[in-house]
Amino acid sequence: MAELAARAILLLVCVLLGWGVVRQFMVVKAATMALDHLAIVPQWKFFAQQKIDGNPEAFDDFHLLVRTGRADAEPGEWHDLLYYGERRLRHALWNPRHGSRSLIMHHGALLTWTEPERAAQPSALSYLTVLRFCLDRTALEPGEVLQFAVAITCGRTARNPRLRFLSAWHCP
């Protein structure tokens, strides 16, 4: 009986591995993303998602910008609230903020996506996540409101930001 169970597990492992090979070359749908996230049939396309091919903005840097304003005055200047600066050597060993920062950036990037074939789509959750982050990090005085934007820049040469998403004005 134990041997039979072990053989069944071995068969399951073979099936999952075979499925895994095939799945590497498929576009994963949102509905089956859990198989990837739970490492049951994971995809291992590091930096090789189909979307990067022929996309000149595939590796552009995202910037989360905020500005504040009042109803009776011109809005203030844009400020970089979240962006990637120069990498530090210690990040090779200790980089605890990588996950949370990437997740906020992921939500910001999602807001700029418009193609319907993507597995993930812009959502109210992404908007609220970025908005909360901005409100947490910006000291607003009474009567002040805040607006955020997602912009992109290219590498170390083309540093002029290009706007990709603009929020409404919000108060805390």
Binding site: Q24, F25, W44, F47, A48, I52, N55, D60, D61, Y83
Partner: peptide, 25 residues
């Protein structure tokens, strides 16, 4: 898969993708 999925992309074969990724912040 990491290698083969890059091989099928023209931007990886031409060097555009690694240059883009490694020159970003």
């Amino acid at each position: 898969a990491a290698g083969a999925s890059k091989l099928v992309l023209a931007d990886w074969r031409s060097g555009v993708a690694p240059r883009g990724a490694l020159s970003s912040y």
